[in-house]
Amino acid sequence: MRAYAHRVLLLALFAVWVAVAWGPLTQQFEALDQWESRLGERSMEERAALLDFPAYSVAEVVKQATPSTACILFLAYTGPEHVNYYKTRFDYHLYPRRVKIEANTGATAENCEYVAVFRDVPGNLQVEPFGGHWDEAQLRERLAGLEKVASGPQVETYRRRP
């Protein structure tokens, strides 16, 4: 039996390894089941819209309404960290359009012919409250001179009148 000790040792090491790995592996199988039931029947666009809510759907609305050469200033009613989050998402989904995003109704951007007013969903605002400057009267006045080109659940897109 001592002659086979090395085989027993190798198998014992492997058994310990599998025992440690078993918990995370079981969790992964459960996660796979859950995601399969949530996403399995959906198209890839629907999956992206569900997981990247609301960024993906908002970007899609703006994308349809703007040319690829456009510059878009997002006035975003969202939390400070979420501003960075949405900046990366909109950059990705809207490239090569230029994206600027500010949590400030008075924000301006040079040579940006489009303005998108984005209001984050209540769930995100509960996690991180709005911390910028938001004045509805100022916004109404500002948008009055613009032409609305698209609107969706969380976003309205405007263009400067020629």
Binding site: L39, G40, M44, R47, L51, D52, R89, Y92
Partner: peptide
């Protein structure tokens, strides 16, 4: 456990969106 999971999920993670795949 992992291969069907990867095929199921859309591109969504932070560094992929912000950096590599962008």
């Amino acid at each position: 456990a992992w291969v069907p999971y990867e095929r199921l999920m859309p591109l969504n993670e932070w560094d992929a969106i912000m950096l590599w795949m962008f």
